[in-house]
Design a protein around this nucleic acid. Structure first.
Length: 860
RNA sequence: GCCGGAGUGGCGGAACUGGUAGACGCGGAGGACUUAAACUCCUCCGCCCGAGAGGGCAUCCGGGUUCGAGUCCCGGCUCCGGCACCA
């Protein structure tokens, strides 16, 4: 379409002669100019900036409007964004736009999880410094996101590797240190031999490094831990009350925390003073204990065997256990090995001496590192007893089983206690309570709870992270860096390749310092923090991105938190999502924050596959977002990633599907482009459309679509059905045009109204093209246009289709006025020829009538 | 083994409170437009029988509840995710 056609609009139709009619849009939909135009408009108008933010020396003004903090998990700037990010950020954008137009103050920030191994490894491979690599990647990612048109508030953008940010990561570390929740101690820890650093338990998957996949070793090292185990119960309890999360994520966290109820029972070493407590979930089987086992790492083992004939064998066993990998150690199928120590412990309930063994099937970091072995009722203990010729005793007998019946396998659970003195005859649960009470009265134990969760190991022997802000003084031990000396800046180094100790240790000018307490010479801690520490509080910092006096402002953070809708990948179910909950609870307990939970609602998206496989560069099946933006436009891509299927499910990529989505936008573009110029129309009243079936059908469909799309976004997170509803509306409009049924003025107005509605509803998904269409239809600023509300008059029908069944089988459909009385409905149904035929003369014994829906005639 | 989720056309999926199974899209078949093609538009497509009218069978399998079940209950199968030598 040429520019000359605009003349027609100016009333010079005569001069323009018989040339093409006025067009409100170019003939063809070309996304590129449309998208850059609207991106420019939104940027100039600061359309998506939200207040309040915390600023130094400026008290915040809190809005009266309801707030909505909409957040997606921030990306790692280790390369470009991939198609999974597009899906993630588009979902967030839909919610943000929807809430904004529904009247909420919407906070929708973005940042970069910029510290950590991915960025550092990228730097190592390119030879550039990590800071430079991530700066380049951030610039590229930011540009990609802009081209996708996300309604992000770029004024609050942060990167966790920025000193302005990690200063406060260090500050938070110090608050944990103050509260006794950060602790340096020796423990058997996971060591990745390729990445040359320790890992948290959460970062070991099936005995392998979460990042590089290599088999993890166990090493005895002194490391920094966050005592997340102190919060195990609260992390569990608050799941039920405070947060609305997908069941599978909650289940994963529950499994990970692994609560089990049981008892602590104290065993005394025979001929010695040592007391060795055990944790058991089956204190009722205490009389069935026939031996006792300690983990090879148990600190008491050395002392117990010292100077004894068994010492050499035990020490050899301990050394062998220390060489095992995490996977070997965890393998339940392996033969049960162990050595006898020559010592005995005394069973507190019956004074029976039990031989004390050391075996690697007992783990040091669960329970107490020692167990009472009950081979009659525990599979592992039975395997060990059989391998080493130890006795097996029955203490639980199922109904009809003799107390001395032999045990073929470890029998758990149901039955009554036998061979157990004062417990005999009790049910298992009663016996548990009875024995716990008995032990407690005598100071020999008590009922207690065990957790599988381990403390969070946060130190890393790698360069690209926030330095742990403490100083080691020969006089004063571990001394925190004073708050006013933060940040402890990450020094530039030449060689940050992993060597098994922090590269910071090779910089004397970094390491050598003075003790803040005594001023004497001291050494800085050289380990850096796990990146999951950085990302455990970033959503707080967004509310105060440049605040210099504090990590966040109390009033502002209390206004925005908790995040109303958080969206991200399921892979963080027990990493980031658990850590962030923990850190927020700690800050809450420290009185720094009102919120007790960071994320009120969570949505976890599915993965996108291609050719039946996970996308990867090596497979060559990666979908590059930029190429699709180039070819089809950002709006098409955004729509397609949400249309693929339920947002929570995995989905298979299809280029044909993308083309189909583009065809839909082309169709809508042509529909709107064929309309006349003019101002937007109001919704016609229901009465005014009486008698005009075409007009009525269009407005009805428009209103039904409003209701459907609103519910799908707000209540169901069902974006693919919302999009298909808009497609139905558009299809009805294009069908009317192609069939030539839009003949009356009322019908033309209704079509225009339907097109406006389609553009309005499409906006959260495809904001550029929707804005352009809206403008073409005479509207302006669709991003601030109130979200439509359906008129209920159009949702009610005056005629309805009633289904007629005979014996539950569909036989006929009946078009009747809505609200027809039951008797009338049944009478009409009975007389239908097909019903009569189906009945075949048999008597109707029952009529089930659901008004406006169905009649079911039951034959005798 | 324990915990959680899921099984619907050729494919992705829809059916939200037990009431028309298959919306929307992909794919396929036929047609219109075109010199031709692309684009676009129209019609049809769960399976089986039937020329048709119509009928039968269909939501993983087997039972059950109900006038009526993809949806609820019981039993089983398969797949996916988490935990697992955790005492």
């Amino acid at each position: 379409a040429g520019g000359g056609q605009r003349v027609v609009q100016g009333g010079c139709a005569i001069l323009a002669g018989v040339s093409a009619p006025a067009r409100i849009l170019p003939e063809r939909y070309d996304p590129a100019p449309v998208e850059s135009k609207w991106q420019g408009v939104w940027e100039r108008e600061r359309a998506f900036h939200a207040e309040p933010l915390a600023r130094d020396g400026e008290p915040p003004v809190l809005p009266e409007r309801p707030k909505a903090y909409v957040l997606e998990m921030l990306p790692y700037p280790s390369g470009e964004i991939h198609i999974g990010h597009v899906k993630n950020y588009t979902m967030g954008d839909v919610v943000a736009h929807f809430r904004r137009r529904s009247g909420a103050a919407v906070f929708h920030p973005m940042g970069y999880d910029a510290f950590g191994l991915p960025a550092e490894n990228a730097a190592i491979s390119t030879g550039e410094p990590p800071a430079q690599v991530i700066a380049e990647n951030i610039a590229r990612i930011r540009e990609q996101m802009r081209r996708l048109g996300f309604s992000v508030d770029w004024e609050t953008e942060i990167a966790t590797s920025d000193p302005e940010y990690y200063r406060w990561t260090q500050w938070i570390f110090l608050r944990l240190l103050e509260r006794g929740l950060a602790e340096r101690r020796e423990a058997a820890v996971n060591w990745c031999p390729v990445d040359q650093t320790v890992l948290a338990n959460e970062q070991v998957i099936d005995g392998r490094c979460e990042r590089c996949g290599s088999e993890v070793e166990l090493r005895q090292l002194t490391q920094w831990f966050f005592r997340i185990t102190e919060y195990a119960q609260r992390l569990l309890d608050d799941m039920d009350e405070l947060i609305d999360w997908p069941e599978r994520v909650l289940t994963q966290q529950r499994n990970w925390i692994g609560r089990s109820e049981g008892a602590r029972v104290i065993f005394r070493v025979q001929d010695g003073e040592e007391e060795i407590p055990v944790f058991t979930t089956r204190p009722d089987t205490l009389f069935g204990a026939t031996f006792f086992v300690m983990a090879p790492e148990h600190p008491l083992v050395g002392r117990l065997v010292e100077g004894r004939p068994e010492e050499a064998a035990v020490r050899a066993y301990m050394a062998a256990a220390a060489r095992e990998s995490a996977a070997e150690r965890g393998d339940a199928e392996r033969a049960k090995t162990g050595v006898f120590t020559g010592r005995y412990v005394v069973n507190p309930v019956n004074r029976e001496p039990l031989p004390l063994w050391v075996a690697d099937y007992v783990l040091m970091d669960y329970g107490t590192g020692a167990i009472m072995a009950v081979p009659g009722h525990d599979e592992r203990d039975l395997a060990f007893a059989r391998a080493h010729g130890l006795p097996v005793r029955r203490v639980i007998a199922a109904e009809g089983t003799a107390p001395d019946a032999p045990l073929e396998e470890a029998e758990p659970g149901e039955g009554r206690l036998v061979n157990s003195e004062f417990l005999d005859g009790m049910e298992v649960d009663d016996a548990k309570r009875a024995v716990s009470a008995w032990l407690e009265e005598r100071g020999l134990g008590e009922a207690t709870v065990g957790y599988r969760l381990r403390d969070w190991l946060i130190s890393r022997q790698r360069y690209w992270g926030a330095p742990i802000p403490v100083i080691h003084c020969p006089e004063h031990g571990v001394v925190p860096v004073p708050d006013d000396q933060l940040p402890v800046l990450l020094p530039p180094v030449d060689d940050y390749a992993p060597k098994g100790r922090s590269p910071l240790a090779a910089r004397p000018e970094f390491v050598e310092t003075t003790c803040p307490v005594c001023g004497g010479p001291a050494r800085r801690e050289t380990d850096t923090m796990d990146t999951f520490v950085d990302s455990s509080w970033y959503f707080l910092r967004y509310t105060a991105p440049h605040l210099a006096s504090a990590p966040f402002g109390r009033e502002v953070v209390d206004y925005w938190l908790p995040v109303d809708q958080y969206i991200g990948g399921i892979e963080h179910a027990i990493l980031h999502l658990l850590y962030a909950r923990f850190v927020v609870k700690v800050l809450h307990d420290a009185g720094l924050l009102e919120a007790n939970e960071p994320f009120a609602r969570l949505f976890t998206q599915g993965m996108i596959y291609r050719d039946g496989a996970k996308m990867s560069k090596s497979r060559g099946n990666v979908v590059a977002p930029d190429e699709y933006v180039e070819r089809y436009g950002a709006d098409t891509l955004r729509l397609y990633v949400l249309f693929m299927g339920p947002a929570a499910d995995d989905a298979e990529w299809s280029d044909r599907g993308v083309e189909g989505m583009r065809r839909f936008l082309d169709r809508l573009w042509r529909l709107v482009g064929g309309l006349d110029p003019g101002p937007p129309v109001e919704r016609p009243s229901f009465e005014s459309l009486e008698g005009d079936e075409v007009a009525l059908a269009l407005v009805r469909k428009a209103e039904a679509t409003v209701a459907k799309v609103t519910a799908d976004i707000a209540e169901r997170f069902s974006f693919h059905t919302a999009i298909s509803a808009i497609q139905e509306l558009v299809n009805l409009g294009t069908k009317g045009v192609s069939e030539g049924t839009i003949e009356t003025d009322r019908a033309r107005e209704a079509l225009r109204y339907a097109a406006q509605t389609a553009a309005s509803l499409l906006f959260p998904f495809a904001p550029h093209v929707a804005s352009e269409l809206w403008e073409a239809l005479g509207g302006e600023g669709l991003w601030r246009e109130p979200w439509p509300v359906a008129d209920p008059a159009f949702l009610e029908r005056d005629t309805v289709t009633v289904v007629v069944q005979v014996n539950g089988k569909l036989r006929e459909r009946l078009e009747v006025p809505a609200g027809l009385p039951e008797r009338e409905l049944a009478a009409r149904a009975r007389d239908l020829p097909r019903v009569v035929q189906a009945a075949g003369g048999r008597e109707i014994v029952r009529e089930v009538v659901v008004p406006d829906r169905l009649v079911n005639l039951v034959l005798g």
